[in-house]
């Protein structure tokens, strides 16, 4: 028998599916490429530099905290720190001072992720925590939007009319001053908003680039349709109801879907596996909550944009949602 003891003994199953954490993480990176390219296209080298700095600092903080604080094996290979860096960068205005981006990275990796125990343990989306920390700490720098300077097309519209303001910020201010909503909409054609010719955080401007990434992730089964569809759907419905009630005072629902971080949030931030519910039912509840909170904050809150807050608030409810949305048991479902 002795010569056979080299056979491996382990429990079933003895084969494994094709999925791995690394593949999922790199899948998200690939899905982010279109949004990243669009941001470089509209905001130039500044966008590239900010992304590189944010990603690098996230990787460095991940490595240092892991190595010297937790004394665990290097975790850079799982790709999660890289995604946090990329997502954080895409959630920042392109003109942000680089040192602020580094501070944001430290908060994202150090506080939002590793203070809870690292990958898989964090209740809140690290990139969003980093972004919200910066937004609260440096409100001026975080709302100083560079106007998009497209390599082609008419660059004058934004520089003339809306310099330094995101569409949402501009609309909120204008509505407060009594400008009717349809006049505001006229200044910002949907086609610009759809393709990304507007001011905003680097990754949020182009709906089409985000949707491309989202479709890729859907095909790769990295995300499911539940969160993006319910998030966008509920935001559309809720803002639509408000708009129908009072078309002068509220922006129309299409405007709400195409501006600000709602696309980026619904496709990339809210779908983060670690901080979203486990079951389809839970994901639907989560998405509905995110959408309604976003519109609530946008229309009635102090900030013009509410996606980050909405997602973080819903993140806090995830453990509760998980308990309340257990999957259908075998014998009880049709």
């Amino acid at each position: 028998m002795a010569e056979n003891t080299k056979w491996v003994i382990s429990g079933a199953p003895h084969v494994h599916g094709p999925e791995s954490v690394t593949k999922i993480m790199w899948g998200v990176v690939i899905a982010l490429i279109p949004s990243f390219l669009v941001s470089v296209y509209f905001f130039g080298m500044q966008a590239l530099l900010l992304t590189v700095v944010t990603v690098l600092s996230c990787l460095v903080f991940e490595y240092l905290i892991n190595r010297f604080f937790f004394k665990r094996p290097c975790s850079l290979g799982d790709g999660s720190a890289m995604i946090t860096g990329l997502l954080l960068a895409l959630n920042l205005p392109s003109g942000l001072p680089l040192w602020m981006a580094i501070v944001g990275s430290l908060v994202a990796i150090g506080i939002a992720k590793w203070a809870y125990g690292g990958l898989g343990q964090n209740p809140f989306n690290p990139a969003l925590v980093g972004r919200v920390f910066l937004l609260i700490s440096f409100p001026a720098a975080m709302t100083q939007w560079a106007a998009p300077k497209a390599l082609f097309g008419d660059p004058t519209r934004w520089t003339d009319a809306l310099s330094g303001a995101s569409p949402l910020g501009f609309a909120k201010e204008a509505l407060k001053n009594g400008v009717p909503a349809d006049k505001i909409s006229e200044m910002m054609p949907y086609s610009d908003l759809f393709f990304g010719n507007m001011a905003g955080s680097m990754g949020e401007i182009s709906a089409i680039a985000i949707l491309l990434g989202g479709i890729y992730m859907l095909c790769r089964k990295i995300i499911t349709w539940h969160i993006p569809v319910t998030f966008l759907g509920s935001a559309f419905l809720f803002s639509g109801i408000l708009w129908l009630c009072s078309p002068d005072k509220f922006m129309d629902p299409v405007f709400h879907l195409l501006t600000g971080g709602i696309m980026l949030g619904a496709v990339f931030m809210a779908t983060d596996m670690v901080t979203s519910p486990m079951t389809a039912k839970g994901k639907i509840i989560f998405g509905l909550g995110c959408g309604i909170l976003t519109v609530l904050i946008r229309t009635f809150g102090a900030y013009p944009e509410g996606v980050s807050f909405a997602i973080l608030i819903m993140n806090a409810f995830v453990p509760l949602i998980n308990r309340g949305s257990t999957p259908k048991r075998f014998a009880t479902c049709k």
Partner: peptide, 20 residues
């Protein structure tokens, strides 16, 4: 790797359990 709470085990379970 650490559990990333993807929920794939829940989706895969033919008995509708939560393996994680």
């Amino acid at each position: 790797y650490p559990c990333i709470r993807c929920g794939k085990c829940v989706d895969a379970c033919p008995m509708g359990l939560e393996p994680y």
